[in-house]
């Protein structure tokens, strides 16, 4: 063999292990999936993924699992979980509140700390999960980073868009609901729940979440942040632009990625689960560059 022959070594991506489990939180079992780091990364924090709420959880469960596996492949201990009343966890969907969703996120962080022996947490949150992740990040002393995937900026706007979208889909199916968004939300307050798209919107969650404001929650946050906007528009929305400016004004290092599409967050795609290569790749790049 010539002495200067090039030796080509094929490196295959590290195999990520997944450990599905249940863990106790507030007197009920919650489902979680832990992916230990697949390679060495000194001083890596652990990633905790906070999912969307209600129907949005089913629509986005796969892309969250992909994000967790990707983080593990990059050397981060990573964990996804199902909040009470969601997915495979126990608990009543009618009883969820923003506060107890945050409690479940903090319990998930404790679980991954036990599994990985790592203290610091990077919070990833999708949609309402973005509000949850933000609140958990601000409350935890050991927060190392925040990833916001199309976070809800204001609770009131979220509920109006949610109800409007579901009413519109009913009309598209030929169903005459005869209701407006305001009437549905008034019904929720008056009767405790409303049935839209064969799914209840419950008063407890609505009343406890509608006044939330992501920018207000993050007033005390100055850690490394990735904001991923997933909207059918070319520029940052005014709310996202203002959030980035506020964070940078406090000295936070903020990265932004824009995915120009509207997945239809409450509508399950029949053909394949929603995912975004760009979203995953940009999140992976951000994690890879994080110290």
């Amino acid at each position: 063999m010539p002495s200067n022959a090039a030796v080509r070594v094929e490196m295959s991506p590290p195999k990520v292990q997944s450990e599905p489990l249940f863990f106790p939180a507030d007197g009920r079992p919650l489902y979680g999936m832990y992916c230990p780091p697949a390679r060495e990364r000194p001083h890596a924090a652990a990633l905790v993924a906070c999912h969307g709420v209600g129907l949005e959880h089913a629509v986005t469960s796969h892309v969250v699992a992909q994000a967790v596996r990707q983080a593990a492949a990059l050397g981060y201990p990573a964990f996804l979980y199902h909040s009470r009343g969601h997915g495979d966890s126990a608990g009543d969907f009618a009883e969820i509140t923003f506060e107890n969703l945050v409690e479940d996120a903090l319990a998930a962080a404790e679980q991954v700390r036990q599994l990985s022996r790592v203290r610091r947490i990077i919070w990833l949150g999708l949609r309402v999960g973005g509000l949850v992740a933000a609140e958990a990040a601000v409350r935890s002393a050991d927060s190392a980073g925040l990833v916001l995937w199309e976070p809800v900026a204001k609770g009131a706007d979220y509920f109006r868009q949610l109800v409007r979208g579901l009413l519109f889909s009913a009309v598209a199916r030929g169903e005459k609901t005869g209701k407006t968004v305001n009437e549905v939300l008034e019904q929720v307050e008056r009767e405790g729940q409303a049935d839209i798209h064969a799914c209840y919107l419950h008063a407890k969650f609505y009343l406890g979440t509608r006044d939330l404001d992501l920018a207000k929650i993050l007033e005390r946050w100055a850690g490394p942040t990735l904001l991923a906007q997933v909207q059918a528009r070319l520029n940052l929305s005014p709310a996202n632009a203002a959030l980035v400016a506020a964070l940078e004004g406090r000295g936070a290092k903020v990265a932004v990625t824009r995915i120009s599409e509207d997945p239809g967050w409450q509508f399950l795609m029949w053909g394949q689960p929603w995912s975004s290569t760009t979203l995953l790749e940009n999140t992976g790049s951000w994690l890879d560059e994080l110290a």
Binding site: H62, H82, G87, F93, C199, L268, P273
Partner: peptide, 11 residues
């Protein structure tokens, strides 16, 4: 699909 079903009927 997913396993818990869109409206958690499977659960």
């Amino acid at each position: 699909r997913p396993r818990f079903e869109y409206r958690r009927m499977a659960v």
